[in-house]
Simulated scan of single mutants.
Amino acid sequence: MDFRIFTEPQQGATYDDLLAVARATEELGFDAFFRSDHYLRMGDGDPGPGPTDAWTTLAGLARETSRIRLGTLVSSVTYRYPGILAIQVAQVDQMSGGRVELGLGTGWFDEEHRAYGIPFPPKRFDLLEEQLEIVTSLWATEPGETYSFQGEHYSLENSPALPKPVQSPLPVIVGGKGAKRTPLLAARFASEFNVPFPDPGTLPGLFENVRRSCSELGRDPDDIVYSAAFVAAAGASEAEFTARASAIGREPAELRVNGLAGTAAEVVDKLGALREQGVERVYLQMLDLHDLDHLDFFAREVIPQLGE
């Protein structure tokens, strides 16, 4: 299993806060630092300094880290035109020496769109399909050639398809819980399929939908990494776990069911069960970005117990 740190900076974090988490992520041996792509705090509470832009943040971290992979889980198609997104991601990949991954989705938080004047069309799945087609095709266009596209939502004419990312292909993450279109998009475009915060027992079926779609398209289902994201809250004792649950405003009993929560032994048992369900990569959603000891606890007390 790979383990990645997943953050939600819109809840209140500066770039320096994120840099501290990213450096701890690297020093403690985690595989990657990922962040959400949102512009408004969700729920009540002090928004602190306000939002940070995902790709601006990742550009900075690309120059201030050396090993960990960097990416979004996930960028929304409503925020950027696909041609601009392709340029941004390729440039950050260059800045990182080839360590970037793009998670792309439809977006869902209409309130943040109203707050910052971003259009939020009611139907966005077709936007996602066209953006995935455009972004991956721009990167795949041979140097010296041009790329054109005519779709319902976007039109590109004789694009030089530059700049190019270092990686070829650059990893693309598609995720969700849809039963039909989402698996097909993952099979067509993704190097990884991610299920965010899955309901208990649903992962095998969701993964099987993607595997079936791959087979229908003539793609090896094992070409895709199968991952899931969970809220993380754990401690060396019940009191430490309860304190961490309280710090992020969650009930311990609920977290034990839906998250990676409790004592180290409890989390190890759940991760073992997830591995048996086909999970190859886990995103640990760390909601308290000032609790770097929490990352240390997972790195030292949980992950080593899983073995190879």
Rank of each mutant, 00 (worst) to 15 (best):
T14K: 02
Y15Q: 02
Y15V: 06
D17L: 04
D17N: 14
L18G: 04
L19V: 06
L19D: 08
A20W: 01
A20L: 03
V21N: 04
V21F: 02
V21C: 08
A22P: 10
A22D: 09
R23V: 10
T25M: 06
T25W: 03
E26D: 15
E27C: 08
L28R: 07
G29T: 09
F30C: 12
A32M: 07
A32F: 04
A32D: 14
A32P: 12
A32K: 03
A32V: 05
A32N: 09
F33E: 13
F34H: 11
F34A: 14
R35S: 12
S36K: 01
D37P: 13
Y39A: 08
Y39I: 06
Y39C: 05
Y39W: 15
Y39P: 02
Y39M: 15
L40P: 00
R41I: 00
R41C: 00
R41E: 00
M42N: 12
G43H: 11
D44W: 04
G45L: 10
G45I: 08
D46N: 15
P47K: 02
G48F: 08
P49F: 03
G50H: 10
G50M: 10
G50E: 06
G50L: 08
P51Y: 04
T52W: 01
T52G: 04
T52Y: 00
D53H: 05
A54P: 12
W55N: 09
W55H: 06
W55L: 11
T56C: 09
T56D: 12
T56M: 09
T56R: 00
T57S: 12
T57G: 06
L58H: 09
L58A: 10
L58G: 13
A59C: 04
G60H: 03
G60M: 04
G60P: 05
G60W: 01
A62D: 12
A62Q: 07
R63F: 02
R63M: 10
R63S: 12
E64W: 00
E64C: 02
E64Q: 14
T65Y: 05
T65V: 05
T65L: 07
S66P: 12
S66Q: 14
S66R: 13
R67E: 15
I68C: 05
I68N: 05
I68S: 06
R69Y: 03
L70S: 10
L70D: 13
G71F: 03
G71C: 09
T72C: 09
L73D: 08
L73A: 14
V74L: 12
V74I: 15
V74R: 00
S75C: 13
S75Q: 10
S76Y: 00
S76H: 08
T78G: 06
T78M: 06
Y79D: 15
